[in-house]
Write a protein that binds this DNA or RNA. Structure first.
Length: 269
RNA sequence: CGCGCCUUUUUCA
């Protein structure tokens, strides 16, 4: 499934049932996950139905996987319906369930409802975790609400949810989108002081920003530097550098970066 | 106790 060999995965699934190996909940979860990643939501849903017909109970994982897909597809009503009914199906929502539904609501522009679920989480025993905060911080950042994003960063720490690399990446990205470069750079320093190592995504965020600002020289410098800090440039890194160079009219340099990308064994997409 | 899994962040469209 992770190799994208969907047909083979499905075939194996058919073979196992034909051989009398009964698929269990985990098997079904895996198949449903694979199908959804392959864009075959229709087959996934029929598999879900088949699962229940065969008295193989879905669990919270099954529902979480489906909820994530429904959210990505902006099928908000269906997601909310599943969220409502899953308890009756014997699946207790957990923190991941809430995170998933919140993320889906935010994607669909239902910020108000997402925030009310978040408060519901705080009141019940589905304690928000780092992922919950990361999700909300990303949404605030995308909407230019950097103040709220920074507030959540404070709040999560005080609640014992430690910010991780993704948290800092998310906050930094939001600040840069809002034109608050200095604050972003200060958070970049802070994250390292707090023992959160920057990763490839951190550098991708900074490099993309530098490129958009026309600071192509700095972008190229950071490309050098990230390697010395143990972060390997990936396709997105090179795409960002190349995009910045092209915007700045440095086509020749862009082409040589493209060459270098392939020399470094990084495949263009 | 340890590990894995489902949910969150980055480029271009």
């Amino acid at each position: 499934g992770k190799e994208g060999k969907i047909d083979e995965a499905l075939e194996l699934f058919e073979i196992m049932t034909a051989m009398g190996c009964l698929p269990n909940t985990s098997t079904y979860n895996t198949i449903i996950y694979v199908l959804l990643k392959a864009g075959r939501g229709d087959v996934a849903l029929s598999t879900f139905t088949r699962m229940m017909e065969e008295r193989c109970s879905p669990n919270t994982r099954t529902c979480n996987t489906l909820l994530a897909w429904l959210g990505n597809e902006r099928k908000t009503n269906e997601a909310l319906q599943l969220f409502e009914t899953m308890t009756a199906m014997g699946c207790q929502p957990n923190t991941v369930t809430y995170n998933t539904v919140i993320s889906g609501l935010l994607k669909a522009g239902r910020g108000h409802m997402a925030l009310s679920l978040f408060s519901r989480m705080m009141k019940k025993r589905y304690s928000p975790d780092t992922w919950t905060f990361n999700t909300l911080i990303a949404w605030f950042g995308k909407n230019g609400k950097t103040h709220e994003a920074l507030e959540l960063l404070e709040k999560m720490t005080s609640m014992g949810c430690l910010p991780d690399t993704v948290t800092f990446n998310t906050v930094i990205s939001g600040l840069l989108k809002a034109g608050q470069g200095n604050m972003a750079l200060s958070l970049f320093t802070q994250m390292m002081e707090k023992g959160c190592s920057p990763d490839t995504v951190t550098f991708n965020i900074l490099i993309a920003w530098l490129g958009k600002e026309g600071k192509t020289h700095e972008a190229l410098e950071l490309l050098q530097k990230m390697t010395t800090m143990g972060c390997l440039p990936d396709t997105v890194t090179y795409n960002s550098v190349i995009s910045g160079l092209l915007k700045a009219g440095q086509g020749r340099m862009a082409l040589s970066t493209f060459t270098r990308m392939m020399e470094e064994g990084c495949s263009p997409d």
